[in-house]
Simulated assay, not measured.
Amino acid sequence: MTVNTFGIPVMQPQVSGVPRLEYVTGTPLCPWRYRGHEKLYVPVDETEDAFRRFRGRLDDINVLVRSGHVVVVDGVEGSGKTSLIHRCVHDLRTRLATELGHPAEDPDDETGLWHPRPVVPGICVVDLSGDARKVAFDNKSQLHPLDTINQNIFKRVLGGVRERVSGDAGELDAMASDTQSSLVELYQRLRDFLDDRQLFALVILPYIRLGSKEMHGNFLLSYVTFSERRVVFFAETTEPDLMATMRLSLTFEEENLVTTLSIGPLKDKDSESFVNVWQGRPGLAQPHVIISPETVAGVSPEIHFQRVRWLQNSLFQLGEIVCRAGRLEISDHDVRALGEQRRNSPELIRRPRSRRGRGHDDR
């Protein structure tokens, strides 16, 4: 069977109990959940600079024993914000595991690629990135008030922590049923619970379309207020200047609790970099789809993929096309045909042809 090189490899559990390797699209990389996903990141659209900034800001992870933190990633839709958040969570989880005395995995060990990673004792990763509709809307698709949204998120955070503790969930149940205390007080009680058990909680917040920039800013500001030691919140926004506006509302101490990471559009050579990394990734011993860098470079003047999600999805779709045709290589004709099908779609931005004229080269 020919492998679609541009599908995201995930080992899926089966009813039979024997896991099955599948290649999917439309889902972010998640290296804290699946082994090997950390090898699939490509230094495009400024994500490498953003990741280095994250590492620099949380270089001393012991600071999380004294204070919490909020990481906000901004960028346009489809630019890879959620994948970057998962990468940051994986990095922080790995370093915390080492600090807690749990040996780190060998990064060169390729056994068990794409399999789910084991649970790390002492670290609760609460992934709410897919829970936006569940926490933000009622059964009539009406948006809840912000306080209700934050209460729903808190209960899910408690549920995620509860999965990682045993025998003493009564205190968590009491927090979940407390309707008198404020959320600030409840997060303080959660902090004390984590302190007593030397646990850390890494919480990936859902991206919720709240209807206005101001409401979204208030949502993010809430989590600066809720920030407590041993808890790190990760959030994303499509508003590039939102954090700059938010910072005007923060005290000096609160500002030190926030790290902002930004992702930009893809550049000219990013498509070639993406293709080279994914075609050179581990686990491709069997026949797999290929596309030459020359093909990518040849169509770039006509078709420009602005966002990494659209680039990956398009290459995956092309891979499916050539697999069905019994071929291995994506040709420039295949790419141009897909571009023609999508000529009215914002996912593919056609560049204007350069004009001939005095003082200009026609390149």
Rank of each mutant, 00 (worst) to 15 (best):
V65T: 13
V65M: 13
R66I: 08
R66L: 12
S67F: 10
G68S: 04
G68H: 05
G68V: 02
V70N: 13
V70A: 14
V70P: 10
V70M: 13
V71F: 10
V71Q: 11
V72R: 01
V72E: 03
V72K: 05
V73M: 05
G75E: 10
G75S: 04
E77A: 10
S79P: 01
T82K: 07
S83Q: 15
S83I: 14
L84F: 14
L84Y: 12
I85R: 05
H86G: 13
H86I: 12
R87H: 14
H90Y: 15
L92Y: 11
R93L: 07
R93W: 01
R95H: 06
L96C: 01
L96Y: 00
L96R: 00
L96H: 03
E99R: 08
L100F: 04
L100Y: 03
G101F: 03
H102Q: 07
A104P: 09
E105Y: 01
P107W: 00
D108Q: 06
D108W: 06
E110G: 07
G112S: 10
L113C: 06
H115I: 07
P116E: 01
R117C: 05
R117I: 07
P118G: 15
P118V: 13
V119C: 07
G122A: 00
I123F: 12
I123Q: 02
I123E: 10
V125H: 01
D127K: 06
L128W: 04
L128C: 08
L128H: 00
L128F: 06
G130I: 03
D131Q: 10
D131A: 08
A132F: 01
A132E: 11
K134D: 12
K134L: 13
F137M: 11
D138L: 03
D138C: 06
K140A: 13
L143N: 03
P145T: 01
L146M: 03
N150Q: 15
N150R: 15
Q151F: 09
Q151C: 09
F154N: 04
F154G: 01
V157C: 07
V157Y: 08
G160T: 08
G160N: 09
G160A: 11
G160P: 09
G160R: 03
E163I: 09
E163T: 05
R164A: 14
R164T: 15
V165F: 09
D168R: 15
A169N: 02
G170I: 09
L172Q: 04
A174P: 04
A174K: 07
S177W: 13
S177M: 15
D178T: 04
T179C: 06
Q180N: 09
Q180T: 14
S181H: 00
E185N: 06
Y187V: 02
Q188D: 07
L190T: 05
R191L: 04
